[in-house]
């Protein structure tokens, strides 16, 4: 019992410390690959591998931090509410873009993964890849996929979106603030929204609205796609 308390405090402290320092590093250099969600995870994984600590032991502390994810998703309603004017002024283009994005993203994800013959569990884990991590993990868990893998696919989606995205959008002549913001937010969620900051205020607002609403639309539609594709 005493031992569990010690482990819990140690791993909570370790996670906070890793996040804190990696965040400082990110603020200092502002390079996408230094995002603390990536670097701090990497450090913790490395530590667990080197010390031979099982994930379950780490989670004695980790699950306390984990339990703040749900309330943080609820808190996303506040920035969305603050953007309500932008949302109302562009209701049709914004909602259509999000709906089309979610449908194309999920359908192409399932179709391609089936083409390569991947298992049901893996398909369910990559299905919500363009949804913000905390929601993607919950969606995957409910469908019967693996939440940790979902988190990794979400990260891959985010990074491919911001690395290839700028050139890709230019190639497709997507250049209006609403088009660019939508592209980043609907495909690359929070990581994309951070990239949209480099474009301008309007792109960022559209992107953050796209991110929040993609999470809502995506969690509604994910079970529907599972049903359509008979997974």
């Amino acid at each position: 019992m005493m031992n569990d308390l010690f482990l819990a405090l140690f791993f909570i402290g370790f996670t906070f410390t890793a996040y804190f320092f990696m965040n400082l590093l990110y603020i200092r250099f502002h390079f996408s690959f230094l995002m603390p969600a990536l670097t701090a995870t990497f450090i913790i994984v490395l530590f667990l591998l080197i010390t031979g600590t099982p994930y379950e032991t780490y989670m004695i502390g980790g699950h306390w931090i984990d339990s703040l994810m749900g309330p943080a998703v609820v808190a996303l309603a506040i920035p969305l509410y603050k953007q309500r004017k932008l949302l109302l002024d562009n209701l049709v283009p914004v909602l259509s873009g999000i709906l089309v994005g979610v449908v194309i993203g999920m359908a192409s994800g399932i179709a391609l993964a089936k083409l390569f013959g991947f298992s049901r569990t893996l398909i369910l884990s990559l299905l919500p890849k363009s949804i913000t991590t905390p929601v993607a993990m919950e969606v995957t868990e409910q469908l019967g996929g693996i939440p940790s893998l979902a988190a990794v696919f979400v990260m891959i989606a985010g990074f491919s979106g911001i690395i290839i995205g700028p050139v890709f959008l230019k190639m497709l002549r997507i250049e209006t603030p609403i088009g660019v913001g939508m592209g980043f937010g609907a495909a690359a969620h929070g990581i994309g929204t951070a990239k949209a900051l480099e474009y301008g205020a309007q792109e960022t607002s559209v992107s953050s609205v796209a991110m929040s609403l993609s999470a809502v639309f995506g969690s509604f539609l994910a079970p529907v796609f599972v049903w359509i594709f008979c997974l």
């Binding site: 562009n90 049709v92 283009p93 914004v94 259509s96 873009g97 999000i98 089309v100 994005g101 979610v102 449908v103 194309i104 993203g105 192409s108 994800g109 391609l112 993964a113 390569f116 991947f118 990559l126 890849k129 363009s130 696919f153 891959i156 989606a157 491919s160 979106g161 290839i164 995205g165 890709f168 959008l169 497709l172 997507i174 250049e175 209006t176 609403i178 088009g179 660019v180 913001g181 939508m182 592209g183 980043f184 609907a186 495909a187 690359a188 559209v206 796209a210």
Partner: peptide, 21 residues
């Protein structure tokens, strides 16, 4: 698969919003 599908999502959502906007 994830990268291709992400780019398709970006193209579809971005061009839809831009066109309708």
């Amino acid at each position: 698969v994830v990268i291709i599908s992400t780019l398709l999502t970006m193209a579809a959502s971005g061009s839809t919003s831009q066109y309708l906007g």
